[in-house]
C-alpha cells in the first residue's frame, strides 16, 4: 500500500480476511468487552428469544473492522469511526473487512481522508457498513 499521506479517492486498504467466528471467541469477547448479554453466549437464552443459535456481538465485528484501520493507520490519527449493523453475524461465518478512500479534504486546518468501510460474509451478505475519518497531515 502507498504511504498514507499520498492516499486519494478510490484507493483501497488491503482486505482483512478473518477466521470463522467461533463460540469461544464470543465468550472471550463477552468477558473482554463487558457486554454480557446472554443472547451472544447462552444458546438456551437465544432459543427462548426465538433465535436459532447465539450470534456475534455487533461490537465484536466493529472491533475487528477497527483492525483494518489499526493495521495501516496510527491510532492517534483516527478522528471518527461509525457503523450501521445491517445483518446478524452467526457462528462459523467468515468475514472480510474492506475500506476505500472516498474523499481527501481539509477540515479544521487538517488534511483528512474519509473511508467507506464494509464487512461481508462468505456469501457476500453485508453485515456492517460504516465510515472512518483519518488525519493525514499529522502522520
Amino acid at each position: 500500500m502507498k504511504p498514507l499521506h499520498d492516499l486519494a479517492p478510490g484507493d483501497e486498504l488491503p482486505a482483512l480476511e478473518l477466521p470463522p467466528v467461533t463460540r469461544a471467541q464470543l465468550a472471550l469477547f463477552a468477558g473482554a468487552s463487558g457486554d454480557h448479554n446472554p443472547i451472544h453466549i447462552d444458546i438456551d437464552f437465544a432459543r427462548a428469544a426465538g433465535q436459532p443459535d447465539v450470534f456475534a456481538h455487533g461490537m465484536l465485528v466493529m472491533a475487528e473492522l477497527g483492525r483494518l484501520l489499526t493495521a495501516h493507520v496510527p491510532i492517534e490519527a483516527l478522528r471518527a469511526f461509525s457503523t450501521r449493523f445491517a445483518a446478524v453475524t452467526r457462528v462459523h461465518d467468515r468475514l472480510t473487512c474492506r475500506g476505500t478512500v472516498v474523499a481527501v479534504e481539509t477540515v479544521d486546518g487538517e488534511r483528512r481522508a474519509r473511508f467507506d468501510l464494509s464487512v461481508t460474509d462468505q456469501a457476500g451478505e453485508v453485515k456492517l457498513v460504516g465510515g472512518a475519518t483519518v488525519a493525514l497531515s499529522s502522520i
Binding site: 448479554n37 471518527a80 469511526f81 450501521r84
Partner: peptide, 16 residues
C-alpha cells in the same frame, strides 16, 4: 435484551 439489537454505533475522537 431478548428483543434488543444494536443498530448503529459511532465514535468521534478528540484525542487518544
Amino acid at each position: 435484551f431478548a428483543r434488543l439489537l444494536h443498530g448503529e454505533q459511532s465514535f468521534t475522537h478528540h484525542r487518544t
